Simulated assay, not measured.
Amino acid sequence: MEPSATSPISPMLAKALDSVPDADSVAGGLLYEPKWDGFRAVIYFDGETVEIGSRGSKMLTRYFPELVEAFTAQLTQPTVLDGEIMVRASSRGSTGGERLDWEALSQRIHPAASRVAKLSVETPAMFVAFDLLALGDESLLERPFSERRAALEALAQGFAAPLTITRTTTDAALAREWLVEFEGAGLDGVVAKPLAASYAPGKRVMLKIKHHRTADVVVLGYRVHKSGNGVGSLLLGLYDESGELRGVGGASAFSDARRLELVEELAPLVVRDEDGAAVTGETDRSRFSGSKDVSFVKLEPTRVMEVRYDQMEGSRFRHTVQFARWRPDRDARSCTFEQLEIPAAYDLSKVLE
């Protein structure tokens, strides 16, 4: 059946690897692409109207009117595209170039139509296509990726900003260079796609290689798990240049048993009032919080843990980090932003060439 907005397709996913694999490590070979860091989106155009579906099949159409206009103007027949929605902005570094701006992109999800219209002009989005799932009345899902890519390249000859197509290479050595260089433009890593593979909705057929680093952080508190039992997530902090302890993100994904163990393990660190009750606080709310409980149990900031992270967004971890180990040998005051690895700036426009 041809994918459509009335029968939305679940995007094909990727499984993580520690390093870029050789091109001949998979039968039929691999094609490498930059791993874009935005909103994964499947575009459905029936010849008249456009719908934009998210990774979870939630419709994002109303939030990106400038993209709807572009797809309507540039697509000449029914089309289903897989790709990424992003916002580009001037680099915060000294290169004078551009980079991806996740914060500006996240601001685009707003309930007020007037705000959506305003931001579509002030921080317009772009779409980078990396797969073609249907064209005309034909579904391409069963075709090998090599054929889908060739069809996408032919289609993209008619693209103009804000629509574009991702660059690719079959050279693993070049892909390894991209993994290092493109992070400075805000990208998330490298994706390797089997050229002989059909499109497998919801399956982890592609391979992704992301940046993985470690940092020693201070545990500031914990949120109770949504079940009401045990630790749901740990809140983490680092000391800035002025000596202030600032929140930088959280760590989660603990097993049921580990969640309960952490409550006992952290009990001696719980800050208590004069009556012996645990002191709680609240993290800042965002448009993604909604009615979610943002309260947490405060802890004395003396426990240090090592975490694995991929990249920073401003002064916070871009994604939830993973617990690596406790660091009883580290003094909490020694956990500063200086330990973080900051990638060299790289101009986004060079990635898009």
Rank of each mutant, 00 (worst) to 15 (best):
A117H: 06
L141H: 09
K118I: 14
L135C: 07
M86D: 03
K118E: 15
A117P: 00
P111Y: 10
S120I: 10
E147N: 09
G136S: 12
Q74C: 00
A150G: 05
A104S: 14
L152N: 00
A112E: 15
L81A: 03
E103K: 09
E69F: 06
S146K: 15
T79D: 12
A134W: 13
R167P: 00
F159I: 05
R88I: 07
L75E: 14
R167M: 09
L75I: 11
A70C: 04
D82I: 09
L100S: 04
A154W: 04
M86H: 10
E66D: 07
A150E: 13
A73D: 15
A125W: 01
T95E: 11
A160P: 03
E69Q: 15
L163P: 01
L155W: 04
A156S: 14
S120Q: 10
L105N: 01
A112Y: 13
P111S: 14
S106W: 01
W102K: 03
A160M: 06
G158I: 12
F130S: 10
G158V: 11
D131A: 10
D137Y: 05
E103Q: 13
P124H: 00
F130L: 05
T79N: 06
H110V: 11
M86C: 15
S139V: 12
S114D: 15
R108G: 03
E153L: 08
R115F: 07
A125Q: 03
R148S: 06
D137S: 14
V121W: 02
T95I: 08
A150H: 06
L163I: 02
M126A: 07
S91F: 00
S146P: 05
T79P: 09
L119I: 07
A134V: 12
E98M: 04
P162Q: 06
A113W: 10
R115D: 09
F159M: 02
S90K: 15
R148P: 02
S90M: 08
Q157T: 08
